[in-house]
């Protein structure tokens, strides 16, 4: 029972990390970046190669973070900036496009096989915690989700750039008139959120594995977590991710593994019908 709970919390943390990255991309550019999971897994594949060269884990993570951050900058330039002026859901198509290009890159460079990312020997021994078993990597992931969540909240509430970002997404023009350089904010925001994706990607893949076909699936689950928790709410992203992970783990354990995604899907549809703005979400003026 508790083992199932921990399994759910761990996979939920992965979803939460993706949901948090979505929120971050929205906060800096007003556009939801569908490709965050793809950035993570690309980084994981990079880590796989670098670890294979015998580099220390921490160095690998930093290199991956920097490389992915740079990739995110490119993404912002080609997929987000051209849309600025016509305020429609263009990013729905362009960031899916970026995600697809990244998938192709992964296939091209690493092929279609599963790659296991091993962070070190110490990560393989299960721990016992509150009557359930948990892997060390699960603890790391939960910690990462909480840390990223806390940092995002602190950034948004307590820093100048966080404040300007919030202002900018509320009223782009009014922010310009107060000297907010929205373009630079969006570019740096993507760089930072890309670096975060690059850093946590190898950790995520250490739990799952790294393969080109994985990120689109993760992207969908991350979005479901985001909707469950409420678009725009960082606390909601974490809770939504964990809730989704728990539902999945319990459906898998107590119904049948075949139901592990069917049950979350039904839950998702129900939430859309009953509380379309999520459990913690605020009603936005118009989402259509």
């Amino acid at each position: 029972m508790m083992t199932t709970v921990w399994a759910g919390v761990a996979i939920g943390s992965v979803y939460a990390l993706i949901a948090l990255s979505y929120n971050l991309s929205r906060a800096v550019s007003g556009a939801l970046n569908f490709a965050v999971a793809h950035l993570m897994i690309l980084s994981a594949l990079l880590a796989f190669t670098l670890l294979g060269l015998g580099l220390p884990v921490l160095v690998v993570l930093v290199v991956c973070a920097v490389a992915t951050g740079m990739l995110a900058i490119v993404e912002e330039r080609v997929a987000i900036r051209p849309l600025r002026k016509n305020d429609s859901h263009g990013e729905l198509v362009t960031t899916v496009g970026v995600a697809t290009v990244l998938t192709g890159l992964m296939l091209l460079l690493w092929g279609p096989d599963l790659r296991a990312v091993r962070l070190g020997a110490g990560f393989d021994d299960p721990l016992s915690f509150l009557g359930g078993r948990m892997l060390p990597i699960d603890v790391v992931l939960v910690g990462a989700a909480l840390l990223v969540g806390a940092l995002t909240v602190m950034w948004s509430k307590h820093t100048v750039s966080g404040l300007l970002s919030r202002a900018q997404t509320m009223d782009y023009e009014a922010a310009l008139l107060r000297g907010v350089n929205a373009r630079r904010l969006s570019l740096w925001g993507f760089a930072v959120s890309g670096a975060v994706c690059g850093f946590v990607g190898p950790l995520v893949a250490a739990k799952t594995f790294a393969v080109a076909s994985l990120p689109t699936f993760l992207a969908v689950m991350g979005f479901v977590a985001l909707i469950l928790g409420g678009l725009g709410s960082d606390l909601g992203a974490v809770l939504g991710g964990v809730l989704l992970g728990l539902v999945q783990a319990f459906a898998s354990r107590y119904l049948d593994p075949h139901y592990q995604y069917i049950v979350p899907f039904v839950l998702f549809l129900l939430v859309l019908m009953v509380r379309p703005h999520g459990v913690l979400g605020r009603r936005e003026t118009r989402l259509v």
Binding site: V78, L83, G90, V93, T94, V96, G97, V98, T100, L105
Partner: peptide
């Protein structure tokens, strides 16, 4: 990669 690029341009 081709599909993705088309989507990007098309979007």
């Amino acid at each position: 990669i081709g599909y993705g690029t088309l989507l990007l341009a098309g979007g």
